[in-house]
Design a protein around this nucleic acid. Sequence first.
DNA 1: ACCCATGTTCTTTG
DNA 2: TCAAAGAACATGGG
Length: 276
Amino acid sequence: MPELPEVETYRRFINELAVGQTIAAVQVNDAHVLATPEDQLRAGLLGRTITGTSRLGKNCFLELDNGRVLVLHFGMTGDVSAYRDEPDTPRFTRVALHLEDSGLRLAFIDPRKFGRIRLADSVAAHQQAKKLGTDALDITAAELQQKLARRKTLLKPLLLDQGITAGLGNWIVDEVLFQARIHPERLGASLSDKEFKALHAAIQLVLSTAINQEATYRQFPSSFLIHAREWDTSATPTSGDAHTFCPRHSKVRIEKYYVGGRATYTCSRCQPHPHP
DNA sequence: ACCCATGTTCTTTG
DNA sequence: TCAAAGAACATGGG
């Protein structure tokens, strides 16, 4: 779930629920997701008021009244929710922040426990520590081109590299490359000026669409490749296999293979392979 | 039972 | 030093 659009949706949820609230208790159900030792986390959070939220790539920040930040990273299966009483605790809640005024508990949910919670001195400090590049919503076409144009690496792994631009994950990169009509195995250095512009425009299109739909995939436009992904097909078993064809070429089947070890979907017509 | 998975990071190999 | 592949992490779901 959690790529940039999901994390932005989580951030908005937290922003509505938690800003202005004071943290009354820190409930740790599974310390595995803590990247800051539990005692330090508790000491850093108890009694602090949440003054705001922000996001960089796939990282969500809860800003505290002493200037520090609580960093949430959701791994592959992370989510947030809120609940009031113990029996309503969502399944796989690993950590919960008890909010003083509302009495609600903000749950950090993560079945697979790849997510992490930590304290950092600031957003900038965390960005530096994790070597995160410019947020994918903020990066300009010029910066993107400057970062990629000399790289002799496959384009898809480059776009997944959070140090180049932060926030793009596996399905979004596939969607972006499909919309830009560029093959994922092109080398960064092989792109033309025009293609860099198309790439940048596609990033904007896909991210803004996903955020506007609050990352609800099934509501995405039919022009999107995402409907071809298997987890969407399994969710809509009655829809037949029309979704396995290119949105622009009803007779061209979407191909699945692996690039950089990641499942990759493309249309061979829209995204011509660079070389055999 | 087996295989796959939205992320990150480290190790190995070329 | 760089690029690419593979593994590891932990676990649920098809």
